[in-house]
Design a protein around this nucleic acid. Sequence first.
DNA 1: GGCCATCGGTAACAATTGTTACCGTTTACA
DNA 2: TGTAAACGGTAACAATTGTTACCGATGGCC
Lengths: 209, 209
Amino acid sequence: MRASLYEAYGTVFEGALIEEIASVAKLVDFNAGDVLIDIGQYIKTMPLLIQGAIRIMREDFDAGELLLYFIEKGDTCAMTLACCMGDKKSEIKAIAENNGTVAMIPVGKMEEWMGKYKSWQAFVFASYNNRFNELLSAIDNIAFMHMDERLYNYLQETSKVNDSRTINKTHQEIAYALNSSRVVVSRLLKALENEGKITLNRNNIELLD
Amino acid sequence: MRASLYEAYGTVFEGALIEEIASVAKLVDFNAGDVLIDIGQYIKTMPLLIQGAIRIMREDFDAGELLLYFIEKGDTCAMTLACCMGDKKSEIKAIAENNGTVAMIPVGKMEEWMGKYKSWQAFVFASYNNRFNELLSAIDNIAFMHMDERLYNYLQETSKVNDSRTINKTHQEIAYALNSSRVVVSRLLKALENEGKITLNRNNIELLD
DNA sequence: GGCCATCGGTAACAATTGTTACCGTTTACA
DNA sequence: TGTAAACGGTAACAATTGTTACCGATGGCC
């Protein structure tokens, strides 16, 4: 556990803090597709991502859902931070994009560390700022970009967080992430293939370039 | 100055903090339409809104702009907070919606107060959380709602922050806020009028119901 | 092999939104 | 008073996105 903590957080946290994290945190493994946090849920323990990627989704009561952004190793979800601090219900849904591990930290410790460790305080603020910027990017995406651009964007991001040029997703799954429909996604993917940017196969998309 | 600070922040800050704010802050009046913060700008002083309303806009390099949310008395802009703390460029534009007043606080004081005043720390976190939720609402708006709903929503919010059922805006201005075009806004406003939800006049819209 | 669910290609059509163009009214101001 | 700019109504059309429907291919499973 120490080793993986050092690998993911060695550059952001001071040694004493990592030791303390190691002493109170519980490591939890998850599998692709696991729902880690659901909307309306109260959060009692704060997750620090050690390995893997998580997608953060927004859901409408009836109009579907939308991918906001991905979280990767060394990140935490500032939304969740906000929930913990404010003792509020979660406004977002967190789903494992692939297999990975989180370190779960009791909420009480977080507040204690805010005063005790400079590096923790800096981390919390940096997380807030990163998430702000991710949300702004998400807004830029849906407000200023067309579906074809959003789709290509999504393919690139997905490729990045899964560390593979091959994307194993169905058109339906992609449609959910973009809050669109399967037919539209198929149509635009076909266009991207004709432009020579991707190749299409059943259950998998290959990013070229 | 003390009086207006107490009126806007008396319930969130402890007395000693308000006194200290009063001793270091500079009151600045602004007029409707003033650009208070522009994209790419560095922030050296933090504004606390005493009176009036400010609209926070996101801008695309060529695809126009979009209203994210309004800030009202007793609020501050967490984006700006983030800029100050992180010494980053502003990602948003802040424009006065009407006439008002802000108290400008040197960045250095903010960090000092984080350790010194519990109520300041709580205020900073609450601001972050509020802004998160505002951003999520903005995303819900553009992702899940149609233009006619967004327009009606905009009219109601604008009515609220200006404390008037009459909205003195041109169709063009509304189109900018919604990142749409004048013709579309005129069309949908006319539809709203036919539904009996508003009445239209030159340079002014009356909210009914 | 036969059955069934999933997946994706495609067409046809509808709805929404954006674009261009034109025109009459109102307002500001020289 | 005259002129130009701003404002908004409207039509016609284009582009984008969503919806429904159908169909062949694939793969799991009995």
